[in-house]
């Protein structure tokens, strides 16, 4: 399982966010270029319809593939009380012919995306990953070179951390407290509950850019 929060930021403030993250995480940023293919089971296959994502990491000398399954979010009073989403997530590295196999099994391509940006992976109570990316769609199937932004001028920020049924509340707390550091630039909440851009972002970004990051007092 994993803890996850999401938010949006205007592209003009992304550089400031990167400076802030660089200071907070203390690790170099990694480039992010991922081709994501969302597959759905054919009409007759499965007890219920199912969905699986194939991710191709293009920022490698030889692209690497993985299969990802995202399950339902945890529900109930306990889940309502925490500000991050806790959901099941399994990701497996696979050889490059995964798409062919899933087609052979009766899965169909539902949609595909190209995510371009950067990410930070670091340890802060829990192991966390922050990714900032623009989401692009393809005018033609698999045409990643012709991809165009889905929301021009806007990028998505994801913070995720792997968790277990035993430690998810600690991990969720660690993610929440980390999000507070980013609050002046981006508001992070449970996915699919958009809270829009942060009105103070422009001022916070200006302050960060002039300060050079790291020591900013926000």
């Amino acid at each position: 399982m994993e803890c996850v929060v999401q938010g949006i930021i205007e592209t003009q403030h992304v550089e400031a966010l990167e400076i802030l993250l660089q200071g907070l995480c203390g690790v170099p940023r990694e480039r992010l270029r991922v081709h994501e293919l969302c597959l759905k089971s054919g009409p007759n296959l499965g007890v219920v319809s199912s969905e699986v994502r194939l991710l191709c990491d293009l920022d490698q000398p030889e692209p690497t593939w993985s299969v990802k399954h995202v399950g339902g979010a945890m529900r109930g009073a306990g889940a309502d009380q925490i500000s991050v989403m806790v959901r099941t997530m399994i990701e497996s590295k696979v050889s490059k012919n995964a798409l062919r196999m899933f087609y052979a099994l009766g899965y169909k391509l539902d949609h595909e995306l190209l995510k371009v940006g950067f990410s930070f992976h670091f340890q802060r109570t829990a192991h966390m990953s922050v990714s900032v990316s623009s989401v692009n769609k393809m005018p033609k199937i698999h045409a990643i070179d012709e991809a165009v932004p889905v929301t021009p001028g806007m990028q998505i920020v994801d913070v995720t951390a792997p968790a277990t049924p035993e430690n998810y509340s600690e991990v969720a707390a660690a993610v929440s407290s980390f999000c507070e550091f980013l609050a002046p630039l981006v508001h992070l909440s449970k996915p699919f509950i958009s809270t829009g851009v942060v009105p103070t972002a422009a001022a916070a970004a200006a302050s960060l850019m002039s300060d050079g990051g790291g020591t900013a007092t926000l």
């Binding site: 089971s41 296959l45 499965g46 007890v47 219920v48 199912s50 699986v52 299969v67 399954h69 399950g71 099941t88 399994i90 990701e91 497996s92 590295k93 696979v94 050889s95 012919n97 995964a98 062919r100 196999m101 052979a104 099994l105 009766g106 899965y107």
Partner: peptide, 24 residues
């Protein structure tokens, strides 16, 4: 899938994914 000449290598956790999908 022998008839289609497909062999796929993956992490062993893919078995959990197959269980979750409930398609096979």
């Amino acid at each position: 899938i022998r008839s289609q000449r497909i062999v796929l290598e993956s992490d062993s956790s893919i078995q959990l994914i197959m269980e979750k999908l409930q398609s096979y």
